[in-house]
Amino acid sequence: MERMNPYPLRLLPGSDLRKALESAVSEQPGGPAFVLSGIGSLIDAKLRFAGHDTATTIPGPSEILTLAGSLAENGAHLHMSISTPDGRVVGGHVVYGNTVRTTAEILLAPLPGWVLRREPDASTGYDELVVRRRVAE
């Protein structure tokens, strides 16, 4: 049984949340990872709601309440919930263009013994997660 070695990550103001997480995984030893937890703040958050093909912008500052998902070698699948300045909570699929306002504090769990890839799935019509054990070289 492999031991999980989670590591913390802080994203700075101006970072694109999704791009930064994809980059962090490609630059860290250990390969793919799952996002265990994430909090922080965004400006003009962008989420794709269930059943929609395009993202919705939630204007102004917002707080990240939850962030979770998988970071495969060829893409991410991330969901988050945010709160607006008036306390309204919305959630959905994380797209590119979510700009960190003050900070994003994230805990990643790398999975060095596994290969995670997103591949077409005929039953859903989307690229879905395929999990394989890493073959020793």
Results as ranks from 00 to 15, higher is better:
residue 128 E to H: 00
residue 22 E to S: 12
residue 133 R to A: 02
residue 35 V to Q: 07
residue 66 T to D: 10
residue 34 F to V: 02
residue 124 T to K: 11
residue 91 G to H: 03
residue 113 G to W: 02
residue 80 M to A: 09
residue 125 G to H: 05
residue 10 R to V: 13
residue 135 V to Y: 03
residue 65 L to P: 01
residue 118 R to C: 05
residue 41 S to I: 03
residue 135 V to W: 03
residue 135 V to P: 00
residue 50 A to E: 14
residue 56 T to D: 04
residue 53 D to L: 13
residue 1 M to Y: 15
residue 51 G to F: 11
residue 132 R to L: 02
residue 67 L to M: 14
residue 43 I to S: 12
residue 70 S to R: 12
residue 28 Q to S: 15
residue 17 L to A: 02
residue 85 P to D: 10
residue 74 N to A: 05
residue 29 P to T: 09
residue 31 G to S: 12
residue 124 T to N: 03
residue 116 L to G: 03
residue 119 E to W: 06
residue 106 I to V: 15
residue 25 V to Y: 08
residue 98 N to C: 07
residue 84 T to Y: 03
residue 124 T to D: 03
residue 49 F to A: 08
residue 89 V to C: 05
residue 115 V to T: 13
residue 27 E to V: 08
residue 65 L to Y: 00
residue 8 P to Q: 13
residue 60 G to V: 01
residue 51 G to D: 11
residue 10 R to M: 15
residue 80 M to H: 07
residue 53 D to V: 09
residue 69 G to P: 01
residue 128 E to M: 10
residue 136 A to H: 08
residue 130 V to H: 02
residue 131 V to A: 04
residue 94 V to E: 03
residue 133 R to K: 10
residue 124 T to S: 14
residue 7 Y to D: 10
residue 41 S to F: 06
residue 122 A to E: 11
residue 26 S to P: 02
residue 41 S to L: 04
residue 97 G to Y: 08
residue 55 A to F: 00
residue 118 R to I: 00
residue 64 I to H: 04
residue 120 P to A: 06
residue 90 V to H: 01
residue 29 P to G: 09
residue 23 S to T: 13
residue 22 E to G: 06
residue 86 D to C: 12
residue 13 P to D: 14
residue 88 R to V: 00
residue 5 N to A: 13
residue 55 A to I: 04
residue 85 P to R: 15
residue 76 A to W: 04
residue 89 V to W: 06
residue 104 A to F: 07
residue 126 Y to M: 14
residue 82 I to W: 09
residue 52 H to G: 00
residue 37 S to Y: 15
residue 1 M to W: 12
residue 41 S to V: 00
residue 70 S to D: 09
residue 96 Y to D: 08
residue 92 G to I: 05
residue 136 A to F: 00
residue 99 T to D: 09
residue 110 P to W: 12
residue 52 H to C: 08
residue 120 P to S: 04
residue 45 A to N: 04
residue 133 R to H: 02
residue 116 L to A: 03
residue 15 S to V: 09
residue 57 T to G: 07
residue 80 M to S: 10
residue 131 V to Q: 10
residue 66 T to M: 04
residue 117 R to G: 04
residue 106 I to F: 11
residue 72 A to V: 07
residue 7 Y to M: 14
residue 82 I to H: 12
residue 69 G to K: 04
residue 118 R to L: 09
residue 75 G to L: 08
residue 14 G to F: 08
residue 57 T to M: 13
